[in-house]
């Protein structure tokens, strides 16, 4: 088993159109590193050059915003559900 990572539609072309992918890691940071290994180019869309989460992108572990948990050090375990959700301007 692994962690399910839900990819927002604007980034799904980096995951071959998949809306969810399986990744491994003990923290959000490790999970995003694994996501980048599997789908090169995706991390820079989510994090800035210092590796910090972009201010218009949020990561939720089991529906909780990691900013209110332990940030990118928030622990994840097999079976968890992680969503990456960006602000959307379109109307």
């Amino acid at each position: 088993m692994a962690v399910t990572v839900r990819i927002p539609t604007p980034l799904q072309r980096l995951t071959n159109g998949q809306g969810e992918v399986q990744c491994e890691g003990k923290t959000v940071t490790e999970l995003l590193a694994d996501l980048e290994r599997r789908h090169p180019g995706i991390k820079e869309r989510i994090c800035d050059q210092d590796g910090k989460l972009r201010r218009f992108v949020n990561v939720f572990v089991n529906e909780e915003d990691i900013r209110f948990l332990q940030g990118d050090q928030t622990a994840v375990k097999d079976g968890d559900d992680v969503s990456i959700i960006p602000a959307i301007a379109g109307g």
């Binding site: 539609t9 201010r55 602000a87 959307i88």
Partner: peptide, 26 residues
């Protein structure tokens, strides 16, 4: 907000709950 085939909805009641900036600071 909407883009491609999806979108999102949030209701903001100031001071009772999160505002848009609480969720996406910038």
């Amino acid at each position: 907000g909407v883009v491609h085939f999806g979108g999102q909805v949030l209701t903001v009641v100031p001071r009772e709950g999160a505002c848009y900036r609480c969720v996406f600071p910038e």
